[in-house]
Amino acid sequence: MKIDALRINEISAATFDWYCRYLMAMDNADLPALLGFFHEDCALQINNHLPMHGHDSIGAAFTRYWEAIDTIEHELHNIYGNDERFCVEMLCHYTRKDGSQVTLPAAVFMDRSTDGRITWARSYIDATPVHDAFTRQYA
């Protein structure tokens, strides 16, 4: 994870550490660890798709996501908000199954419960370059 140019406003060091651990679980394709960051009553929405609700639905989506890539690395640029609600601007560096690399800008909005788990996450990224490779590979 790259954070050289990161700007943060009002989130605590503990929340920043929490978010870094969340991204590491994603980068390591560690589904049990990743789902541990989500509240039981959670939702995840990607772009303009309908939200996914609950661990089963979100877990299945992440499993399909990881099947399309070899690696991902997040480069954080900005985190704005507070410990309960924040947004993150980043670059996502993907290595696809064919070995090619793609860097995509992304924005993520997170809402967390009082116990610090995700209740609602919205991710905005045009992952077409990644998914096109996945579609061609498995078509």
Rank of each mutant, 00 (worst) to 15 (best):
L44S: 04
E10V: 00
R64F: 04
Y65I: 08
R21H: 03
D132T: 13
S57Y: 08
A106P: 00
E67A: 12
T63K: 15
D41T: 07
M52I: 08
L91H: 10
L44G: 01
A33E: 02
V108A: 14
R85Y: 13
E73G: 07
A127M: 10
R21S: 04
H49W: 11
F62V: 03
T128A: 11
H93P: 00
N78Y: 11
A14N: 07
L35W: 01
M24S: 14
A106R: 05
F86N: 00
I8V: 13
P51T: 08
G99H: 06
F86I: 01
T15H: 01
R136C: 07
M52K: 10
M1I: 03
T128K: 13
L6F: 07
F134T: 07
L34P: 05
A139G: 10
S57C: 10
D27Q: 15
I46D: 10
L31K: 05
N28D: 04
M1Y: 10
G81N: 06
R117E: 06
S57E: 15
F109R: 03
E10H: 15
T128Q: 09
A127R: 15
G81F: 01
I118V: 14
W120K: 15
R117G: 03
N82S: 08
L31H: 03
I46A: 13
L31E: 02
P51C: 05
S100C: 09
I58G: 00
M24R: 15
V108P: 00
D30F: 00
A61C: 13
T63A: 14
D115F: 09
T128V: 04
F37E: 00
C42P: 08
A121F: 03
A33L: 02
G81P: 03
R96K: 15
N47P: 02
N9K: 13
S113I: 02
Y80M: 06
T103K: 10
H131A: 07
E40V: 08
I58F: 02
H93A: 01
R64T: 08
M52N: 03
E10G: 14
